[in-house]
Computed example of a mutant assay.
Amino acid sequence: MMFTIFSSLISVSQAQDPSQLSLDYYSKTCPAAQDIVKAEMECAVRDDPRNAATILRLHFHDCFVQGCDGSVLLDDTYSLQGEKEASQNANSLIGFDIVDKIKNQLESECPGVVSCADLLAIAARDAVLLVGGPYWDVPLGRKDSTTASFSAADTDLPAVNHGLVTLITKFLAKGLSVTDMVALVGAHTIGKARCVSFRDRIYGDFGTTSHSALTSELYLSSLKSTCPASGGDDEVSPIDNVTPTLFDNSFYHILLRGEGLLNSDQEMYSSLLGFETASLVQKYALDPIAFFNQFSDSMVKMGNITNLEGGEVRKNCRFVNS
């Protein structure tokens, strides 16, 4: 049974022929596409810097299930069960209204041309750039899936309570290396987490991994005031409490201090099995340029995970075309 599941993960994660994605895919059919996405993202991030992390997370959760095919955006209907209510997405993923706004602008300019999957890939890049992160060219030409997979969203996505071996296995199943994983998790430098996601950590081994310095004690006390031992599940805290709205390498410094908010993050440095991951955490903490370069490369690599079954260009990102 486990072999069957692992085999299915591998088959889903295989990318299509890279020639099907190109940097100039919309140069003739919708030359203004990337400018439209950028303008809408500028408005969204100006309204609330958290929107950068929101859109980036949507792209991650899309690519890890069936490939980068816009399946995470689909609403439930009488004939289709979407992924929004899966355990790793429910009460957690937001930003669908931002996607709707961008899609409406694209449809006004170039009806039926730009896929929702491509929209997300471009928006994620712009989101990072707008909060101080690196730029990368986004290969385009993805199709939107006409299906979603609630079950794959439950099984394929990494979770905050996963140990290091499980996390690595989930990334490898998508064709992403340990180096890719440590770099991509650096996206948490601009994220926020719900209390329910870090309660076990702060009432568990936080004190063991963190230094006993006064700053660590004050930080832990602050976290417990935000997230009580029971209740308050939807209260949020920045994953990077030092520069929460700036895309930088501060996240890795936090892991070096043993103060990672999420268990899955701290595992990369503190796990007894984390020889390679701990070395990478140290590298990115010391060298922000190395982090930026690897993050850009890994984002392109993740974005090239496509749905082998192809699909369509949805007119509305929430529903398949009729």
Rank of each mutant, 00 (worst) to 15 (best):
residue 21 L to Y: 00
residue 64 F to I: 10
residue 132 G to A: 08
residue 118 D to E: 10
residue 69 D to M: 06
residue 140 L to G: 02
residue 72 V to I: 15
residue 130 L to E: 09
residue 41 M to K: 02
residue 121 A to C: 14
residue 43 C to N: 15
residue 106 L to R: 01
residue 66 Q to S: 14
residue 41 M to G: 04
residue 84 K to A: 11
residue 114 V to Q: 04
residue 41 M to F: 06
residue 142 R to C: 08
residue 121 A to K: 11
residue 126 D to S: 07
residue 52 A to I: 04
residue 106 L to S: 02
residue 41 M to W: 06
residue 40 E to M: 08
residue 155 T to I: 05
residue 42 E to Q: 14
residue 119 L to A: 01
residue 25 Y to A: 14
residue 84 K to W: 08
residue 100 D to S: 11
residue 22 S to T: 13
residue 127 A to W: 06
residue 153 A to S: 12
residue 44 A to K: 02
residue 103 K to R: 00
residue 72 V to W: 05
residue 62 D to R: 00
residue 86 A to E: 01
residue 140 L to E: 12
residue 133 G to N: 14
residue 159 A to D: 13
residue 33 A to Y: 07
residue 127 A to Y: 01
residue 84 K to R: 15
residue 149 S to L: 09
residue 27 S to C: 08
residue 138 V to I: 14
residue 28 K to I: 13
residue 130 L to Y: 09
residue 116 C to N: 12
residue 47 D to N: 11
residue 43 C to A: 15
residue 78 Y to F: 12
residue 63 C to N: 05
residue 115 S to Y: 02
residue 96 F to R: 01
residue 114 V to S: 09
residue 138 V to H: 03
residue 46 R to F: 12
residue 88 Q to N: 10
residue 32 A to H: 13
residue 63 C to S: 15
residue 24 D to Y: 04
residue 83 E to Y: 02
residue 128 V to M: 14
residue 95 G to H: 04
residue 66 Q to P: 04
residue 66 Q to C: 12
residue 51 N to W: 00
residue 37 V to N: 03
residue 83 E to R: 05
residue 23 L to N: 09
residue 68 C to N: 08
residue 152 A to R: 13
residue 111 P to V: 05
residue 147 T to H: 12
residue 107 E to F: 07
residue 105 Q to I: 02
residue 96 F to P: 03
residue 30 C to P: 11
residue 132 G to K: 03
residue 158 P to Q: 10
residue 63 C to L: 11
residue 111 P to H: 06
residue 100 D to R: 03
residue 33 A to P: 06
residue 155 T to G: 02
residue 148 A to Y: 00
residue 141 G to T: 02
residue 47 D to Q: 09
residue 80 L to H: 07
residue 50 R to Q: 13
residue 26 Y to E: 10
residue 106 L to D: 01
residue 29 T to G: 11
residue 81 Q to I: 03
residue 49 P to H: 08
residue 60 F to P: 04
residue 120 L to R: 03
residue 79 S to K: 13
residue 149 S to V: 05
residue 19 S to M: 14
residue 26 Y to H: 10
residue 45 V to S: 06
residue 42 E to T: 14
residue 133 G to D: 10
residue 38 K to A: 15
residue 114 V to I: 08
residue 151 S to F: 07
residue 63 C to E: 10
residue 22 S to P: 08
residue 53 A to F: 15
residue 32 A to E: 15
residue 75 D to V: 11
residue 69 D to H: 06
residue 99 V to M: 06
residue 140 L to I: 12
residue 36 I to D: 00
residue 65 V to C: 05
residue 95 G to Y: 03
residue 136 W to D: 03
residue 37 V to M: 08
residue 118 D to W: 09
residue 29 T to E: 14
residue 74 L to N: 01
residue 145 S to V: 12
residue 42 E to N: 13
residue 70 G to N: 07
residue 152 A to F: 13
residue 71 S to E: 02
residue 30 C to V: 07
